[in-house]
Design a protein around this nucleic acid. Structure first.
Lengths: 287, 287
DNA sequence: AACTAAGTTTCAAATAGTGGAACCTGTGGG
DNA sequence: CCCACAGGTTCCACTATTTGAAACTTAGTT
């Protein structure tokens, strides 16, 4: 079973007797329901009512009713025999719509195919979402196709090629906000562990238009990435080629940069063509 | 732009002055919010407030507040410049969790890889969801044939190989319910257009364990499918090999059946191993 | 049978959602 | 230049919905 990432997905504020402190849970019932959905998602496995009850601070009856509602709406599903809750099918349908209409994926897809088979390398497409990298699509040269497996996955922005490629071109206010949201966890000895260190890197990236992951996230794993910039120079996302030190040097990867840039431009061009002029082409961006 | 499929995906019941007929919108605010989400998803493109207002029967202010909530929750995203709503990024993250924990995909993945490269054909994995086929994964061998399909996509159950493979092994009550939900639209001259006709076909499928799509959904497109059955004989999903009449005959496809069956059994075996004994392995099933 | 953990239902109190109407824009006429 | 108007946004009194302590069922123990 994959490492269960139980990291309190949304810090559901909780001053029990603490009066009305401020905007905590927010957004009424809908907000609570969605927070609960995140909660269930965070388990990464079927969950019992009691588990949710102890982790959440909702009173029993409230939690119960909320779960009922979510199940009835098929956002969750409840195994009647065992009482385990899992994520519901409606999410997958909705996500399909989201993926199709609010991401670069449909536009980028043919270009990624082309690039992947041209370079014979693994290619990623990612966008920035709340200071984190959201992987939208992936093309694996050898073993083709993957969907939500990799699409939908999130990763850190401060220590991935795509993350840095996007951050380098994001407006100052968005960058500031994003930097505050990074964990600065030292994944490897090459990881940037402070905003200053990263900013220096971003400056280079801005100059060259090329971002490298020098084993900053995982040992042995390296990557080149370039941003996808719209006609106003705003980053819509980024694409990357990932490899390992066993197969390529950073210089080798640098050799892929021209092809990446070309592809990124092609995607940007298509994206603007698909969009109502003036509208930002993607729903998913910074903030 | 890809064909906009505007087919009122959920028949949002609508008795305007009709008093309180019965369980319509249901589930309070959460239900309404989710219905709205579906509404937006159905457009398949960015939507304006006014469009939603005229299609929905919510009063202006209510709709407005709901949208605000959903945007604030990142289930929708609103382009501040243009006022267009699109699906939000949170859906993609949630769907990833759903896909990972509530579908057969993670378990089936290696087996599909294996099958796809062994047969050098396009392989699909699907599950039944509310009388419809929900495509969970797809593996496309070498050259992609001209066909659109992706994880998260939904399709009819009564005229697809995977749909019929599952229906053939579903308990009587689920089958009855599912049959009522079919549109019986005559996609091609081979499409089953009535429950009787389909039932006869299902009987054969039950006998042989093999389901064929004989150009029933799209002209030229044919497919063999087999169900994935758990140890109690309940269908967890189905896998299929799809091709076109230009490349294969139905007899050719029949030749793939043994490999398909073997793979389906392997998936079922793994699925039961991954699950708490007694729990149904997948959240997504009939009903 | 007595106890306990886990899940379900009740019900008065209170919060949160409703929606008609007024109020802001920015745009396009006249 | 001023008015009309469509597309959005905000108000606010009215109510339906949500809330959660507590009582109540089941299963599973000891």
């Amino acid at each position: 079973m994959s490492t269960v990432l139980k990291l309190t997905p949304q810090k559901v504020g909780r001053p029990k007797g603490g009066k009305d402190v401020a905007a905590q849970t927010q957004d009424g019932t809908v907000g609570k329901a969605l927070a609960l959905l995140d909660e269930v998602a965070a388990y990464g496995r079927p969950v019992r009512f009691a588990e949710l009850l102890s982790d959440s601070d909702l009173p029993k009856a409230t939690l119960y009713r909320l779960l009922q509602t979510l199940v009835s709406q098929r956002m969750l599903s409840l195994d009647p025999d065992t009482g385990f809750y899992t994520m519901g099918s409606r999410l997958i349908r909705l996500a399909h719509a989201a993926w199709q209409t609010a991401t670069l994926a449909p536009v980028a897809r043919p270009h990624l195919d082309q690039l992947s088979s041209q370079l014979q390398q693994t290619v990623h497409l990612a966008q920035l979402d709340h200071g984190q990298v959201l992987y939208i699509d992936k093309r694996n040269a050898a073993r083709p196709i993957a969907m939500f497996s990799d699409a939908g996955k999130i990763g850190p922005a401060y220590c991935t090629g795509v993350g840095k490629a996007i951050l380098a071109f994001v407006p100052a206010d968005v960058l500031d906000a994003a930097l505050k949201q990074q964990s600065w966890f030292r994944h490897t000895e090459h990881t940037h562990t402070s905003a200053e260190s990263l900013r220096a890197d971003l400056k280079d990236i801005r100059a060259t238009g090329i971002s490298f992951d020098r084993e900053e996230h995982e040992p042995q794993i390296i990557c080149v990435a370039v941003p996808i910039l719209d006609d106003l120079g705003r980053p819509l996302g980024a694409i990357s080629v990932t490899s390992s030190t066993l197969r390529h040097s950073l210089d080798d990867l640098a050799g892929f940069a021209p092809a990446l840039k070309e592809t990124a431009e092609a995607i940007a061009r298509d994206a603007s063509a698909y969009t109502i002029p003036g509208a930002s082409p993607s729903g998913i961006t910074g903030a």
